[in-house]
């Protein structure tokens, strides 16, 4: 089952850390907020190659606006680690 990176837009402040860690997945819009490069833009599919960087982004997001949804270990809807 595939994992997705969920952006809580009510928390996101567009600080840009996730877009640096996941440049293939996320770009930035005019105001600095992340934009998925393809597919769903709130629940973004994470490829195998991006799994580690996605976990890192979740850990480092200064606003706790990211979480992993669905599939795989360590993804019960809670953010991974701290």
């Amino acid at each position: 089952m595939s994992r997705t990176l969920h952006i809580d837009w009510t928390k996101c402040d567009g600080r840009g850390l996730c877009t640096e860690l996941l440049p293939g997945l996320l770009g930035r819009d005019d105001w600095g907020y992340p934009v998925a490069r393809r597919g769903d833009r709130t629940d973004i599919a994470i490829g195998r190659d991006d799994a580690e960087a996605a976990d890192e982004a979740i850990k480092l997001c200064p606003k706790l606006a990211l979480r992993v949804v669905g599939g795989g270990a360590g993804s019960s809807g809670r953010p991974a680690g701290c």
Binding site: W9, C12, G32
Partner: peptide, 12 residues
Amino acid sequence: RQCGPCMFGLPA
């Protein structure tokens, strides 16, 4: 004014 894309995108 909770979500950035709405807060800034709609006025734009």
